[in-house]
Amino acid sequence: MADYVVHREIDARGSACPGPLMELIRALKAAEKGQVVAVLSTDQGSKVDIPEWVEKAGHKLLATEEDGEATRFVVEKAR
């Protein structure tokens, strides 16, 4: 079982690139340090864009889960 609590989940399925990444960025901007945000994306580009951005921005990618046709990225605001 996951040892984190998702504070906010964004359903960005059907949203074209860069929609899901921009949704995640907006949500993390509004979140407090330590909170966890999840984003659901069906855009293939997200599999590269989201992990790359999370690393560059110094946050933590806690999980990448396949969820039907979508991928769920779970990110902790680390700073």
């Binding site: 690139c17 864009d49 951005w53």
Partner: peptide, 10 residues
């Protein structure tokens, strides 16, 4: 630009 290229359209 906000994402990892210079425009949203690849």
């Amino acid at each position: 630009y906000p994402i990892n290229r210079v425009h949203s359209n690849p």
